[in-house]
Design a protein around this nucleic acid. Structure first.
Length: 875
RNA sequence: GGGCGCAUAGCUCAGUUGGUUAGAGCGUCUGGUUUACACCCAGAAGGUCAUAGGUUCGACUCCUAUUGCGCCCACCA
């Protein structure tokens, strides 16, 4: 025993234990479905690099849930994987190639060679991520590992694309997109960065109205004036046509009305440029107007619209147009202090120009999904699954954000002009279109574009189980029990998964309940540095690398530091000292266990009630309470609280009190039982240290698959808890008096300690007193007779009496208790009144009534206690 | 502009349906090598629970308003 080191060196155990678990098959779901299956799909990390704190948090939380469910005996599937992360990966590789001198990889290498470069890079990244995932202790089923760009998932992507196309959900159409004229690619909304800019705002005379604009260079072909339908100033011109003097001669303009116009803004009238503004484009669609392209894809004015400005860059054209209009006397005024946001591509920071382009879209409004006996649209289904409670968001407040997002949802643009990704399974020949994965024959040319990465990762929950095949896994493990992810991708990913899963699974004939991707969605917060700032690669000093921390403090400490102090949906700050603190706890567990192990020496037997001392009864009762509340917290995704409960129990109660007392009298069976049960409770949080200790306990089953503890009703001794509370109170009072130095020695505190009658249990009374003195930080020199008015308590089987008068200001105490009794009395009457109200009993749910009864009982007991206390005081 | 969140000890944070004297870790200070642990033990200082009202016998907790910080969405023609 003495050979066990006094500190837990995590590195000595982690890899070995992980291999042991993995080899035992514990990570795979057991084969028999005696209980409901538990499924959690790991959100696949991008195959672009290394594990960061976001991943680490995700893995820590997920592994806690999974280990807990596994110990409860559910067949548990935790499926890992990686994401090909279209744009992100491609740009990483592009950057690497550029460093090597390849400026434009696609043109210089060709599509195939470029793809190969990316594939090679991804292979390396994937294995890096996998290794790092294992370091976190993640107990996922590697035999089912998936990749969003594997052949199988590509098949699933093509299948759903084809299905949606045939259902008319996917269509090709001219739509306005964000175009980066510098990088020559579309940019998705979430890759935009808005920068505030002070610009000039011009007012021009335009026929019968004055229009305001910050972008005169787009106005060459504007022929439509829009005003608000209720705007009194313009009532008489709505619907009329005018000949208007404009930039380069006269044009015909028409006035239309639309509610989207803000009468307060500018002059309340504007002209529209549908091809280069999102709002204008939508407006044009509504009114079935044309959308001519004024600015080409290089960011120049197209010559056919302007003789003078054709070929000019936007910036130059703007000045030129203003000058021309000014010379014609059409410039009314210029507002120099106009502030607005301009959109930049966050990669490259080029100003994004809205352009109309042919893209592939998913229609979110077309009612073609069979959902609860009617044809529903994607929007309808998205709304229904959360509204009906089939899918629950944790924390609940995200419901509101989610619904708001659906209300504003536009058709989903799924095509991207990049190389790395699922190629759109569409083929063209002489104006003909075919949608299928493989080439229909010679002369057919495949669409150059690839699919939005979320289109494919939206299939994650069911394609990984074998869809479109009807597999046993799909039967057993769909839908996922929980999805755990960061709230920042609620829309990008969570919503897409709901779209894809409900559509595809219904299409394959599964029920609505089976078709949802998951039941609960747990959204964790972002990890920030100690100042609350985002950790960013550009400021390495703010970054904490989880792998460095694992090296330094061990995985268990890192996991705890990511989970404790974190609540769903809220960001959390992390700093090294916090991790160090939990390393200390891990070490405390190790040493607590060492002590128990040293004292066992084969002496443990069945626990017999008649042999239990008061402190045994107390710790067993407390343990029951801890089992109950930890289980309860875990069931409600309150990981932080669950962790804290077990932390406080193990350190503050088991080690600080029970273990100390067992140096006086010990019950090996109880020591061992409490230790083992605690290890089980702590295992989901700290798998390594707990399993490492478990191994030296010579159990036949590994801890990872041992049974989750249950409350043992035999070992509930409510009075023991009260007595122990009193011990602690007494001891603390002694310590307090002592530390205040008001009472320098035992002389003034008539502290009387004596052993109980059955001295057989305690042989060496002097030793006990020494121990107790130690516990109380008190020199005890005197033992003696009982005192009447005293607080009494037991430590082990030793009773301590403390004269009350020394401890308390009697009068103040009495007043306090009396006040409380008074308040309780009122409370009781109000409760009784409520419970005797027939309408309440009838109408309120049974559970609420029951709770009220419990409250009443609690209050009655409290009152009783207070009365006893006050009686004692009055004696 | 619309929405959401946060505000509790010097710092980082808990505090689930309102109920004894508001907690923890870190940091600071004091004292301690005791059949595991100095990555330890014991103790202390430190709080008007952002502010102002309201509901209640009772509010950190519920309601209203205000202030400060953070985030998301929309986007200003």
């Amino acid at each position: 025993m003495t050979s066990i080191p006094t500190t837990f060196n995590a590195a000595d155990f982690e890899d070995r234990l992980y291999a042991l678990w993995s080899k035992s098959g514990a990570f795979q779901p057991k084969d028999h479905d005696d209980k409901e299956a538990f499924t959690l799909m790991m959100p696949p990390p991008n195959a672009t690099g290394t594990l960061h704190l976001g991943h680490a948090t995700m893995l820590a939380i997920e592994d806690i849930i999974v280990r807990y469910k596994r110990m409860q005996g559910h067949p548990t599937l935790y499926l890992p994987g990686t994401d090909h992360a279209a744009i992100a990966t491609q740009s990483v590789v592009e950057k690497k190639l550029q460093e090597k001198g390849v400026k434009n990889p696609l043109e210089e290498l060709g599509r195939e060679a470029f793809l190969k470069e990316i594939r090679d890079f991804v292979e390396v990244s994937k294995s890096t991520i996998k290794k790092q995932t294992k370091k976190m202790g993640t107990s996922c089923d590697w035999s089912r590992e998936c990749y969003t760009f594997s052949d199988e998932l590509n098949h699933a992507v093509n299948t759903i694309f084809q299905m949606m196309y045939e259902d008319g959900l996917i269509y090709r159409g001219g739509r306005i997109v964000n175009w980066d004229p510098k990088m020559k690619t579309t940019v998705s909304d979430d890759e935009l960065e808005y920068v505030e800019e002070k610009a000039k705002f011009y007012y021009f005379k335009y026929g019968p109205v004055v229009i305001g604009t910050a972008r005169p260079e787009t106005k060459f072909a504007d022929k439509i004036i829009v005003v608000h339908p209720d705007d009194k100033r313009y009532q008489n011109i709505i619907g009329k046509e005018f000949e208007v003097e404009w930039i380069e001669g006269k044009i015909n303009a028409r006035v239309i009305a639309d509610e989207c116009i803000d009468p307060e803004m500018g002059t309340g009238a504007m002209t529209i440029t549908p091809a280069h503004s999102f709002v204008d484009f939508e407006l044009a669609q509504r009114h079935k107007l044309e959308a001519p392209q004024i600015i080409d894809f290089d960011g120049r004015i197209k010559p056919e619209f302007s003789k003078a400005c054709g070929g000019m860059q936007i910036k130059d054209a703007r000045e030129a147009v203003v000058k021309m209009l000014d010379e014609k006397g059409l410039l009314v005024k210029v507002d120099e202090n106009y502030v607005h946001n301009i959109a930049l591509n966050y990669r490259g920071k080029a100003v994004v120009e809205p352009q109309v382009m042919d893209q592939w879209f998913v229609d979110v409004n077309k009612p073609v999904i069979n959902w609860k006996d009617k044809k529903s649209s994607i929007k309808d289904v998205l709304q229904d699954v959360v509204l009906s409670g089939m899918i629950r968001l944790v924390p609940e407040r995200f419901n509101k954000v989610y619904f708001h997002w659906i209300d504003n949802l536009r058709d989903w643009c799924i095509s991207r002009q990049i190389v790395w990704g699922h190629r759109i399974p569409v083929w063209y020949k002489d104006g003909e279109i075919k949608v299928q994965p493989k080439s229909p024959g010679k002369d057919w040319v495949q669409d150059e574009d690839t699919l939005d990465t979320w289109f494919s990762s939206g299939l994650w929950t069911f394609s990984t189980l074998g869809w479109p095949n009807k597999t046993r896994d799909l039967e057993r493990f769909a839908p996922s029990t929980v999805l755990e992810t960061g709230y920042d991708i609620l829309f990008f990913w969570v919503a897409r998964m709901i779209i894809q899963s409900t559509y595809a699974m219904r299409k394959s004939g599964y029920s609505e309940e089976k078709s949802i991707p998951f039941k609960d969605v747990y959204l964790h917060g972002l990890i920030r540095d100690i100042h609350g700032k985002k950790m960013s690669k550009s400021r390495p000093e703010t970054c904490i690398d989880p792998l460095d921390m694992i090296k330094k403090y061990g995985t268990d400490a890192v996991r705890l530091s990511l989970v404790i102090g974190s609540t769903p949906g809220n960001d959390m700050r992390l700093y090294e000292e916090k991790i160090a603190g939990f390393r200390n706890f891990v070490n405390k567990i190790w040493n607590g266990a060492r002590f128990v192990l040293m004292n066992l020496e084969g002496k443990e037997r069945e626990i017999k009630v008649e042999e239990l001392t008061r402190s045994d009864k107390w710790i067993l009762t407390r343990l029951n309470e801890v089992i109950e509340s930890v289980t309860n917290k875990l069931d409600n995704y309150a990981f932080s609280e669950a962790g804290l409960i077990i932390y406080d129990f193990f350190w503050g109660e088991f080690c600080d009190w029970y273990v100390e007392m067992s140096k006086v009298t010990k019950n090996e069976s109880v020591l061992s039982y409490v230790l083992k049960t605690s290890l089980k409770l702590m295992h989901p949080f700290m798998p390594f240290v707990t399993e490492a200790i478990w191994v030296s306990l010579n159990e036949d089953k590994m801890l990872i698959i041992s049974e989750w503890p249950k409350v043992n009703p035999k070992w509930n001794f409510p009075s023991a808890s009260d007595e122990m509370d009193r011990v602690m109170q007494v001891v603390r009072e002694i310590r307090k008096l002592r530390s205040e130095s008001k009472v320098p020695a035992a002389k003034k505190i008539h502290c009387i300690i004596y052993a109980h009658e059955d001295k057989d249990l305690i042989n060496d009374k002097a030793e006990i007193i020494k121990r107790l003195a130690n516990l109380c930080a008190l020199d005890i020199s005197k033992t003696g007779e009982r005192v009447n008015k005293a607080l009494s308590a037991f430590v082990g089987d030793v009773e301590i009496y403390l004269p009350l008068a020394e401890l308390l200001d009697m009068e103040a105490e009495k007043a306090r208790i009396e006040k409380e009794i008074d308040s309780l009395q009122t409370y009781l009457t109000s409760l009784e009144k409520k419970l005797s109200n027939e309408a309440f009993i009838k109408n309120a749910p049974a559970s609420v009534v029951e709770k009220e009864r419990v409250k009443l009982k609690d209050a009655e007991q409290k009152l009783l206690k207070l009365r006893v206390q006050i009686d004692e005081l009055c004696k």
